[in-house]
Amino acid sequence: MIPHYFLYEEAAPKVEPSFLHIEPIPVRSGRHDWTIRTHTHPDHHQILVISKGGGAIEVEGVSWEVSPPSLVIVPALTIHAIRFKPDTDGYVITVAPPFLQSALDNDADLVEGFRIPVRFLPQQIGDDIDLVGLFASLEHEFVWSAPGRRTAIKAYLQLLAVTVRRLLEQERARPVSTARDADTVMRFRELVERHYRNHPPLDFYARKLGVTAARLNACCRATTGKSSLALINDRLLTEAKRNLLYSDMTVNEIGAALGYADPAYFNRFFSRNVGLSPGRFRERLLPGQTRAVAG
C-alpha cells in the first residue's frame, strides 16, 4: 500500500497534527538522497517553494518539472513523489486543512486555492512576489517561541493564500482571448467534483454553466487539451485508483461507490482507460499483498 504520512517517513506526528509544520527542503530530502518516494498525506496539505535547484514532482501520475522560484500545492490525499536535484533548497509547509481554513477565516475564495494540485513556475510568479522571503518569515515564527507566534503564523498563511489566489486569477486572465474558456473549465471542474459519482449527462453540466455541450467541450479542449468527457473520466479514474491503493474495499464496492450499479461495466470502463483491470492494477502496484478484488 502507498504509505500515508504526516511528515515523510514519520508515521506518528512529532508536532501538532491540527497545526502546521515547516522546514527547509534539505532537512528531509537531503538525507533521502533527494528522492521522496510515492506517498500521500491523508490529513494535511503540503505547500512547497523552490528557491534553488529544482527537479520533478509527480502528482497523480503526472510529472511536473520545477525550477526556482516555483510554488507547488499538493492537497491532502494527493498521491505524489519528488526527485529533487542535489542541493535543492526551499521550504515545505505541511498544514491541516481545518487550521488553514481557520487561519483564512473560512474565506471560500482563499481556501479554494488549496483544493487541487497546482504549480506556479518562474515566468508566472515574476519578480514582484517574494515567496521565498514569505516562507522564511513563516519558518522563523514557527521555530521561535515568542508571544503572538500562532497569530503571526496565521498572518503569513493569509499572505500566502492571497498570493496563491492572485496567481490563479492571473492565469485565468492570460491570455485575454481564452479567459472565458479558462473560467468555464474551472467552474466545470468544480461541478464535476460535486457530481461525478452520479454520472449526470454533459447537458447537465452545460446547463449549469449556461453554455451548450458543444461549447463546453470546446472550452475544455482549448484549455486542457482534453474533452469534457475525458476530464470527468479522469476524475472517476483518480478516485478509483485511490480506493484500489488506499482501501480494503473490493472492486465491486469501489465501483458501487463511484456510481456503477453494474460491476462488469465498471471493470470495462477501468480496463479501457487504464489498460489493466482494477484487480490487476491493484496487484501490480501492491505486490506481495493478498487482497480481495471482487465483491
Rank of each mutant, 00 (worst) to 15 (best):
K52C: 00
E112Y: 01
F120D: 05
L100S: 13
I57A: 10
I93C: 07
A146S: 10
R31N: 09
A96K: 04
T94M: 11
F120K: 14
S102W: 11
L110V: 05
Q123R: 11
A108G: 09
A81F: 03
P75H: 06
V118I: 10
D43G: 07
I116K: 15
H44P: 01
R37P: 03
G30Q: 03
P122C: 01
G53Y: 07
W144H: 14
T78S: 13
F99Q: 06
E141Y: 15
A96D: 11
R83P: 02
F135P: 07
E65K: 01
L77N: 15
I47A: 03
L121E: 12
S67F: 00
F142K: 12
L104Y: 02
I129V: 14
H39L: 08
A96Q: 11
E60N: 15
G30Y: 03
T78Q: 06
I82S: 07
T40K: 02
F84H: 12
P98Q: 11
L134F: 10
S29H: 04
L100V: 10
E58H: 06
P98S: 11
H140S: 13
D107S: 05
P86F: 04
G126L: 07
F99D: 09
R83V: 04
P97Q: 06
I125K: 08
I73C: 02
A108P: 02
P86S: 08
L100P: 09
W64L: 12
T94V: 15
V132F: 12
V118R: 09
W144Q: 13
P122A: 04
V27R: 15
G54Y: 06
A56M: 04
R115K: 06
I125H: 04
D109G: 00
L134T: 09
D43Q: 12
G54I: 14
A108W: 15
V143G: 14
P117W: 01
I125Y: 01
